[in-house]
Design a protein around this nucleic acid. Sequence first.
DNA 1: ATATTTTGTTAGTACAATCTAACTTGTTAG
DNA 2: CTAACAAGTTAGATTGTACTAACAAAATAT
Lengths: 219, 219
Amino acid sequence: MISQTEENYLKALYNLTYLKGEATVNEISKRLDIKMPTVNSMMKKLSEKGFVHYESYKPLKLTEEGKKEAALIIRKHRLTEMYLVEKMDFAWDEVHQIAEQIEHIHSPEFFTKMDQLLGYPTVDPHGSPIPDHNGVMRSENYIFLDTCEIGDVVTLMAVQPSSKELLQYLNTKNLELGTTLTIHSIEPFDRSITVSYGNRPAEVLSSKVTATLLVRPIS
Amino acid sequence: MISQTEENYLKALYNLTYLKGEATVNEISKRLDIKMPTVNSMMKKLSEKGFVHYESYKPLKLTEEGKKEAALIIRKHRLTEMYLVEKMDFAWDEVHQIAEQIEHIHSPEFFTKMDQLLGYPTVDPHGSPIPDHNGVMRSENYIFLDTCEIGDVVTLMAVQPSSKELLQYLNTKNLELGTTLTIHSIEPFDRSITVSYGNRPAEVLSSKVTATLLVRPIS
DNA sequence: ATATTTTGTTAGTACAATCTAACTTGTTAG
DNA sequence: CTAACAAGTTAGATTGTACTAACAAAATAT
């Protein structure tokens, strides 16, 4: 059995790693507002249970099983948010706290029923994708930046695969998750793309970079 | 703050005492399937917190505050059951396990919304009354047996006030909570009532007894 | 390249909620 | 009325999840 507390750690790790495939003890500590030693020992425990790859002083990763567990919790969270908005008439900004609690309910029938009553939605009220009942996130909404066209306006959602070097490169360009990009031109020769975002001059991104950036078109 | 565990003890105590005003450590132990020493120390803790009257070797009682807390949890449970049946199309026998979990959700708005969507119901799908938002159980459905009429068919719901002697008397008559009674005659002189129930000859109950028995008419 | 800071780990403590074993009090049957 | 049994209590151990203090490793800045 997996406790509510453990579920919260898995979820935090999933969300933190969604971007770059790994996360640190420190990041989890900050996100959950729990001190680092507590996080550290919980990570060892989750490693024992087969949900996390743990090695001393190395960044943390979820195992495939850990990813699935986490995705299923996120599924419950997002289905709940959708249900609260669609069927109970809550505003989109009121539902998070309630969903944080209901996501821990153990009852497959309950969430299956919600899913059914909602007509099997694929995104929650905030546009985030809802994983399916096998924990697979159908990120249909996310596409690689190198598949976009001139004039598209997109939001940076994830980086896959990622490397330290790539993330450092993105930092120097002030490119972070959630940044909204406008595509100005695409160079036919090397497929490099010129984008603008924030209050800064346009930037040119090579195809090596654009092939790793997952974005969501603003539509 | 009151933990989920504490809530379960309060609810158990409320249900056990509803009938006779008090309950024993042993009864709670059996109902929750938790060993007596654990129950004992939890009762002391709840006493510290002002929810329970605890005295060594004496039966347990809820304080007014304890009753209110418990009733509010039961309110959440019964509202949830009603919601699951009415709005989510669950069968009446599928909802208990889910409600056991949802009753612990902390979100006044969530339950207020349920109440509203259900049109402010006063009983749950099993006919049990739903306490109001102040924790007051409007037991309008329960009436004293001495106010019934010939031909009425009723279910014994509670005994108030109760005494050891009265309960022993009821035991000798095989009268227990949930027993369905049919009223055959009422003696005008002393208002004693003749009833039948189960596979046994009719019994005569004195007005002293009938004035303490709370019943729900079967309608 | 080394000193400083940040991050990660270990060790030991605390508290909530559970247990078992042993003892005490209360109840009940001869 | 007392012996036996049931119920209640105390003491001490265990597990899960948190903490602080102290130390170790890694990253960073001068």
